[in-house]
Protein backbone atom coordinates (compact mmCIF):
# COMPACT_ATOMS: atom_id res chain seq x y z
CA UNK A 1 0.00 0.00 0.00
CA UNK A 2 1.46 3.34 -1.08
CA UNK A 3 1.05 6.28 1.25
CA UNK A 4 1.39 10.00 0.56
CA UNK A 5 2.44 11.96 3.62
CA UNK A 6 1.03 15.46 3.88
CA UNK A 7 2.90 17.31 6.59
CA UNK A 8 6.48 16.10 6.94
CA UNK A 9 7.67 17.59 10.23
CA UNK A 10 7.15 16.09 13.72
CA UNK A 11 4.38 13.52 13.41
CA UNK A 12 4.95 12.92 9.70
CA UNK A 13 8.39 11.57 10.51
CA UNK A 14 7.11 9.31 13.28
CA UNK A 15 4.45 7.90 10.97
CA UNK A 16 6.85 7.36 8.07
CA UNK A 17 8.87 5.01 10.24
CA UNK A 18 5.81 3.30 11.70
CA UNK A 19 3.96 2.71 8.45
CA UNK A 20 7.09 1.34 6.82
CA UNK A 21 7.49 -1.15 9.68
CA UNK A 22 3.81 -2.05 9.29
CA UNK A 23 4.51 -3.06 5.69
CA UNK A 24 3.22 0.02 3.90
CA UNK A 25 5.36 2.28 1.71
CA UNK A 26 6.09 6.00 1.87
CA UNK A 27 5.58 6.93 -1.79
CA UNK A 28 5.19 10.68 -1.76
CA UNK A 29 6.10 13.49 0.64
CA UNK A 30 4.31 16.84 0.64
CA UNK A 31 5.06 19.84 2.82
CA UNK A 32 4.70 23.58 2.46
CA UNK A 33 8.31 23.70 3.65
CA UNK A 34 9.99 21.88 0.76
CA UNK A 35 13.11 21.01 2.78
CA UNK A 36 10.98 18.98 5.22
CA UNK A 37 9.43 17.00 2.37
CA UNK A 38 12.80 16.45 0.70
CA UNK A 39 14.49 15.23 3.86
CA UNK A 40 11.78 12.71 4.58
CA UNK A 41 11.50 11.58 0.93
CA UNK A 42 15.24 11.01 0.79
CA UNK A 43 15.19 8.85 3.91
CA UNK A 44 12.43 6.63 2.51
CA UNK A 45 13.16 6.71 -1.20
CA UNK A 46 9.94 8.59 -1.93
CA UNK A 47 9.00 11.31 -4.37
CA UNK A 48 8.47 14.94 -3.41
CA UNK A 49 5.58 17.20 -4.33
CA UNK A 50 5.05 20.86 -3.65
CA UNK A 51 1.31 20.61 -3.27
CA UNK A 52 -1.14 18.05 -1.98
CA UNK A 53 -2.91 18.05 -5.35
CA UNK A 54 -0.24 15.67 -6.62
CA UNK A 55 -1.08 13.16 -3.89
CA UNK A 56 -4.70 13.28 -4.88
CA UNK A 57 -4.16 12.78 -8.62
CA UNK A 58 -1.35 10.21 -8.50
CA UNK A 59 -2.80 6.83 -9.44
CA UNK A 60 -0.30 4.80 -7.44
CA UNK A 61 -1.24 6.43 -4.13
CA UNK A 62 -3.62 4.25 -2.09
CA UNK A 63 -3.78 6.23 1.12
CA UNK A 64 -3.03 9.69 2.44
CA UNK A 65 -1.58 10.51 5.86
CA UNK A 66 -2.65 13.91 7.10
CA UNK A 67 -0.14 15.22 9.63
CA UNK A 68 -0.60 18.95 9.10
CA UNK A 69 -1.61 21.47 11.76
CA UNK A 70 -5.14 20.66 12.93
CA UNK A 71 -7.10 23.41 11.12
CA UNK A 72 -6.00 22.01 7.72
CA UNK A 73 -7.18 18.47 8.39
CA UNK A 74 -10.68 18.95 6.98
CA UNK A 75 -9.50 20.50 3.72
CA UNK A 76 -7.20 17.56 2.98
CA UNK A 77 -9.71 14.97 4.14
CA UNK A 78 -12.28 16.38 1.72
CA UNK A 79 -9.77 16.41 -1.14
CA UNK A 80 -8.51 12.90 -0.44
CA UNK A 81 -12.05 11.51 -0.12
CA UNK A 82 -13.02 13.12 -3.40
CA UNK A 83 -9.98 11.54 -5.03
CA UNK A 84 -10.95 8.12 -3.65
CA UNK A 85 -7.92 7.78 -1.34
CA UNK A 86 -8.12 6.12 2.04
CA UNK A 87 -7.26 8.49 4.87
CA UNK A 88 -5.15 8.22 7.99
CA UNK A 89 -5.64 11.45 9.93
CA UNK A 90 -3.47 12.41 12.89
CA UNK A 91 -5.40 13.37 16.02
CA UNK A 92 -7.16 15.64 16.80
CA UNK A 93 -9.51 14.62 14.01
CA UNK A 94 -10.46 18.23 13.17
CA UNK A 95 -10.61 21.58 14.91
CA UNK A 96 -14.34 21.34 15.67
CA UNK A 97 -17.05 18.73 15.99
CA UNK A 98 -18.84 20.26 12.97
CA UNK A 99 -15.73 19.79 10.83
CA UNK A 100 -15.48 16.17 11.99
CA UNK A 101 -19.08 15.60 10.90
CA UNK A 102 -18.36 17.03 7.47
CA UNK A 103 -15.27 14.84 7.15
CA UNK A 104 -17.17 11.67 8.13
CA UNK A 105 -19.93 12.43 5.62
CA UNK A 106 -17.41 13.01 2.82
CA UNK A 107 -15.57 9.74 3.51
CA UNK A 108 -18.83 7.84 3.65
CA UNK A 109 -20.02 9.34 0.38
CA UNK A 110 -16.72 8.53 -1.34
CA UNK A 111 -16.59 5.03 0.13
CA UNK A 112 -13.07 5.51 1.55
CA UNK A 113 -11.74 4.42 4.93
CA UNK A 114 -11.13 7.26 7.38
CA UNK A 115 -8.96 6.53 10.41
CA UNK A 116 -8.09 8.88 13.29
CA UNK A 117 -4.76 8.26 15.01
CA UNK A 118 -5.75 7.94 18.67
CA UNK A 119 -2.52 6.12 19.29
CA UNK A 120 -2.85 5.94 23.07
CA UNK A 121 -5.39 3.14 22.56
CA UNK A 122 -2.43 1.18 21.13
CA UNK A 123 0.12 2.03 23.83
CA UNK A 124 1.24 -1.08 25.68
CA UNK A 125 0.93 0.49 29.14
CA UNK A 126 -2.60 1.70 28.42
CA UNK A 127 -3.57 -1.69 27.02
CA UNK A 128 -2.16 -3.26 30.18
CA UNK A 129 -4.17 -0.91 32.40
CA UNK A 130 -7.34 -1.69 30.46
CA UNK A 131 -6.65 -5.39 30.90
CA UNK A 132 -6.17 -4.97 34.66
CA UNK A 133 -9.51 -3.16 34.92
CA UNK A 134 -11.24 -5.82 32.84
CA UNK A 135 -9.71 -8.62 34.90
CA UNK A 136 -11.69 -7.33 37.89
CA UNK A 137 -8.59 -7.22 40.04
CA UNK A 138 -9.27 -3.71 41.35
CA UNK A 139 -13.01 -4.25 41.68
CA UNK A 140 -15.51 -1.78 40.28
CA UNK A 141 -13.64 1.31 39.07
CA UNK A 142 -14.92 4.62 40.45
CA UNK A 143 -12.13 7.07 39.74
CA UNK A 144 -9.42 7.72 37.17
CA UNK A 145 -6.69 10.34 37.08
CA UNK A 146 -4.34 10.85 34.16
CA UNK A 147 -1.65 13.50 33.82
CA UNK A 148 0.17 14.04 30.54
CA UNK A 149 2.59 16.56 29.13
CA UNK A 150 5.79 18.47 29.53
CA UNK A 151 7.47 21.23 27.60
CA UNK A 152 5.52 23.53 25.25
CA UNK A 153 5.82 22.01 21.77
CA UNK A 154 7.51 23.71 18.89
CA UNK A 155 8.66 26.94 20.51
CA UNK A 156 6.89 30.30 20.77
CA UNK A 157 6.48 30.80 17.01
CA UNK A 158 4.95 27.41 16.27
CA UNK A 159 1.28 27.00 15.38
CA UNK A 160 0.72 25.26 18.73
CA UNK A 161 1.00 28.67 20.42
CA UNK A 162 -1.90 29.90 18.31
CA UNK A 163 -4.70 28.52 20.44
CA UNK A 164 -7.32 29.28 17.79
CA UNK A 165 -5.48 26.83 15.58
CA UNK A 166 -4.28 24.22 18.03
CA UNK A 167 -6.84 24.38 20.84
CA UNK A 168 -3.89 24.26 23.22
CA UNK A 169 -2.92 21.29 25.33
CA UNK A 170 -6.59 20.37 25.86
CA UNK A 171 -7.44 19.71 22.21
CA UNK A 172 -4.03 18.66 21.01
CA UNK A 173 -2.68 16.51 23.83
CA UNK A 174 -5.28 15.82 26.52
CA UNK A 175 -7.58 14.55 23.76
CA UNK A 176 -5.65 11.27 24.02
CA UNK A 177 -6.85 10.78 27.58
CA UNK A 178 -10.36 12.08 26.98
CA UNK A 179 -10.64 9.45 24.24
CA UNK A 180 -9.05 6.68 26.29
CA UNK A 181 -11.27 7.26 29.32
CA UNK A 182 -14.35 7.09 27.08
CA UNK A 183 -12.95 4.02 25.28
CA UNK A 184 -12.49 2.11 28.54
CA UNK A 185 -15.12 3.53 30.89
CA UNK A 186 -17.92 4.81 28.66
CA UNK A 187 -19.75 7.98 27.72
CA UNK A 188 -19.29 11.29 29.56
CA UNK A 189 -22.29 13.24 30.82
CA UNK A 190 -20.70 16.35 32.35
CA UNK A 191 -17.35 18.11 31.90
CA UNK A 192 -15.73 20.91 33.86
CA UNK A 193 -12.40 22.35 32.80
CA UNK A 194 -9.95 25.18 33.25
CA UNK A 195 -7.19 25.89 30.74
CA UNK A 196 -4.43 28.45 31.30
CA UNK A 197 -3.65 29.25 27.62
CA UNK A 198 -1.03 31.96 28.13
CA UNK A 199 0.31 33.48 24.93
CA UNK A 200 3.22 35.79 24.24
CA UNK A 201 6.96 35.29 24.37
CA UNK A 202 6.71 32.35 26.74
CA UNK A 203 3.51 30.53 25.86
CA UNK A 204 2.26 28.15 28.53
CA UNK A 205 -0.82 26.00 28.73
CA UNK A 206 -2.04 23.95 31.66
CA UNK A 207 -5.42 22.28 31.59
CA UNK A 208 -7.35 20.68 34.45
CA UNK A 209 -10.48 18.76 33.54
CA UNK A 210 -12.94 16.65 35.51
CA UNK A 211 -15.71 14.61 33.92
CA UNK A 212 -18.55 12.54 35.22
CA UNK A 213 -19.41 9.49 33.14
CA UNK A 214 -22.74 7.80 32.65
CA UNK A 215 -21.42 4.88 34.71
CA UNK A 216 -20.91 7.27 37.64
CA UNK A 217 -17.12 7.17 37.36
CA UNK A 218 -15.24 10.44 37.90
CA UNK A 219 -12.20 11.15 35.72
CA UNK A 220 -9.71 13.95 36.37
CA UNK A 221 -7.25 14.75 33.61
CA UNK A 222 -4.33 17.14 33.81
CA UNK A 223 -2.61 18.29 30.61
CA UNK A 224 0.53 20.38 30.75
CA UNK A 225 2.53 22.36 28.27
CA UNK A 226 3.81 24.44 31.17
CA UNK A 227 6.83 22.44 32.25
CA UNK A 228 10.32 23.78 31.47
CA UNK A 229 11.42 20.40 30.07
CA UNK A 230 10.60 16.76 29.61
CA UNK A 231 7.50 14.70 29.03
CA UNK A 232 5.73 12.49 31.54
CA UNK A 233 2.55 10.46 31.77
CA UNK A 234 1.02 9.32 35.05
CA UNK A 235 -2.19 7.40 35.49
CA UNK A 236 -4.14 5.80 38.29
CA UNK A 237 -7.40 3.93 38.39
CA UNK A 238 -9.13 3.34 41.72
CA UNK A 239 -11.70 0.62 42.23
CA UNK A 240 -13.63 -0.64 45.22
CA UNK A 241 -11.15 -3.49 45.54
CA UNK A 242 -7.81 -1.97 44.68
CA UNK A 243 -6.01 0.40 42.38
CA UNK A 244 -3.54 0.46 39.51
CA UNK A 245 -0.90 3.11 38.89
CA UNK A 246 1.42 3.90 35.99
CA UNK A 247 4.25 6.40 35.74
CA UNK A 248 6.35 6.87 32.61
CA UNK A 249 9.24 7.96 34.82
CA UNK A 250 9.41 4.34 36.02
CA UNK A 251 11.08 2.93 32.94
CA UNK A 252 13.47 0.11 32.08
CA UNK A 253 16.01 2.62 30.77
CA UNK A 254 16.97 6.09 31.76
CA UNK A 255 19.77 8.27 30.61
CA UNK A 256 21.34 11.57 31.47
CA UNK A 257 23.71 13.18 28.99
CA UNK A 258 26.80 14.95 30.20
CA UNK A 259 26.27 18.55 29.13
CA UNK A 260 29.15 20.89 28.50
CA UNK A 261 29.02 23.90 30.77
CA UNK A 262 26.88 24.07 33.87
CA UNK A 263 23.45 23.92 32.27
CA UNK A 264 20.92 21.50 33.69
CA UNK A 265 20.77 17.97 32.33
CA UNK A 266 17.62 15.98 32.16
CA UNK A 267 16.96 12.37 32.98
CA UNK A 268 15.28 10.84 29.94
CA UNK A 269 13.39 7.60 30.64
CA UNK A 270 12.83 5.16 27.81
CA UNK A 271 10.53 2.18 27.52
CA UNK A 272 11.34 0.47 24.24
CA UNK A 273 8.99 -2.09 22.70
CA UNK A 274 9.62 -4.16 19.61
CA UNK A 275 6.42 -3.01 17.94
CA UNK A 276 5.67 0.68 18.53
CA UNK A 277 2.08 1.79 19.16
CA UNK A 278 2.33 3.86 15.97
CA UNK A 279 3.20 0.76 13.98
CA UNK A 280 0.27 -1.06 15.58
CA UNK A 281 -2.22 1.63 14.59
CA UNK A 282 -0.91 1.45 11.00
CA UNK A 283 -1.35 -2.32 11.04
CA UNK A 284 -4.90 -1.79 12.28
CA UNK A 285 -5.54 0.75 9.52
CA UNK A 286 -4.02 -1.50 6.85
CA UNK A 287 -6.12 -4.48 7.95
CA UNK A 288 -9.23 -2.29 7.72
CA UNK A 289 -8.39 -1.18 4.21
CA UNK A 290 -7.26 -4.61 3.02
CA UNK A 291 -9.63 -6.98 4.81
CA UNK A 292 -12.39 -4.68 6.02
CA UNK A 293 -11.57 -5.62 9.62
CA UNK A 294 -13.04 -3.03 11.97
CA UNK A 295 -10.26 -0.93 13.55
CA UNK A 296 -9.94 -0.01 17.22
CA UNK A 297 -10.77 3.65 16.50
CA UNK A 298 -13.75 4.78 14.44
CA UNK A 299 -14.10 8.27 12.99
CA UNK A 300 -17.06 8.72 15.34
CA UNK A 301 -14.69 8.09 18.27
CA UNK A 302 -12.41 10.79 16.88
CA UNK A 303 -15.34 13.19 16.58
CA UNK A 304 -16.59 12.59 20.13
CA UNK A 305 -13.08 13.14 21.47
CA UNK A 306 -13.03 16.53 19.73
CA UNK A 307 -16.46 17.26 21.20
CA UNK A 308 -15.16 16.43 24.70
CA UNK A 309 -12.15 18.71 24.29
CA UNK A 310 -14.41 21.46 22.95
CA UNK A 311 -16.68 21.01 25.99
CA UNK A 312 -13.69 21.33 28.33
CA UNK A 313 -12.61 24.53 26.56
CA UNK A 314 -16.16 25.87 26.58
CA UNK A 315 -16.32 25.20 30.32
CA UNK A 316 -13.03 26.99 30.78
CA UNK A 317 -14.31 30.01 28.87
CA UNK A 318 -17.70 30.20 30.59
CA UNK A 319 -16.66 29.01 34.06
CA UNK A 320 -19.52 26.52 34.09
CA UNK A 321 -19.77 22.76 33.69
CA UNK A 322 -20.91 21.57 30.26
CA UNK A 323 -23.47 18.80 29.82
CA UNK A 324 -22.97 16.36 26.97
Amino acid sequence: MNVAIIGCSGMGRVHADALTKAGLRVALCVDTVRANAEALAKAYGAKVAASAAKAMTAKDIDAVLIATPTPFHLEYILKAAKAGKHIFCEKPFCRTEAECKEAIAAAKKAGVKLFVGHVVRYFHEFEAMKAQVESGKIGKPGFVKISRGGIFPGGPKSWFANYKMSGGVTLDCMIHDLDWVRYVFGEPVRIYGKALMRSGKEPMDYSQVTMRLKSGLIATIIGTWAHPAGFRVQAEICGDGGMVQYDSADAPMSSMKRETGSGPSMIVPASPVSESPYQREWEDFAAWVRDDRAPRVTPEDGMIAVRMAEAALESSATGKPVRL
Binding site: G142, F143, G193, K194, L196, Q208, G239, P321
Partner: peptide, 29 residues
Protein backbone atom coordinates in the same frame (compact mmCIF):
# COMPACT_ATOMS: atom_id res chain seq x y z
CA UNK B 1 -16.82 19.91 42.84
CA UNK B 2 -17.62 16.61 41.18
CA UNK B 3 -17.78 13.95 43.87
CA UNK B 4 -19.69 11.26 45.68
CA UNK B 5 -19.42 7.76 47.02
CA UNK B 6 -17.22 6.33 44.28
CA UNK B 7 -15.53 3.39 45.96
CA UNK B 8 -17.48 2.35 49.06
CA UNK B 9 -21.01 1.84 47.80
CA UNK B 10 -23.20 -0.18 50.13
CA UNK B 11 -20.64 0.37 52.87
CA UNK B 12 -20.92 4.04 53.86
CA UNK B 13 -23.40 6.89 53.42
CA UNK B 14 -20.98 9.78 52.85
CA UNK B 15 -18.83 10.84 49.90
CA UNK B 16 -15.42 9.22 49.61
CA UNK B 17 -14.00 11.28 46.76
CA UNK B 18 -14.26 14.75 45.31
CA UNK B 19 -12.49 16.44 42.42
CA UNK B 20 -12.49 20.16 43.20
CA UNK B 21 -11.78 22.98 40.79
CA UNK B 22 -11.17 26.17 42.74
CA UNK B 23 -10.13 29.67 41.94
CA UNK B 24 -8.02 31.92 44.13
CA UNK B 25 -7.67 35.70 44.12
CA UNK B 26 -5.74 36.78 41.05
CA UNK B 27 -7.28 33.98 38.99
CA UNK B 28 -5.02 31.12 40.12
CA UNK B 29 -6.64 27.90 38.87
Amino acid sequence: CEGGNQLHQGEIDVDDLGSLHLEMEGGIQ
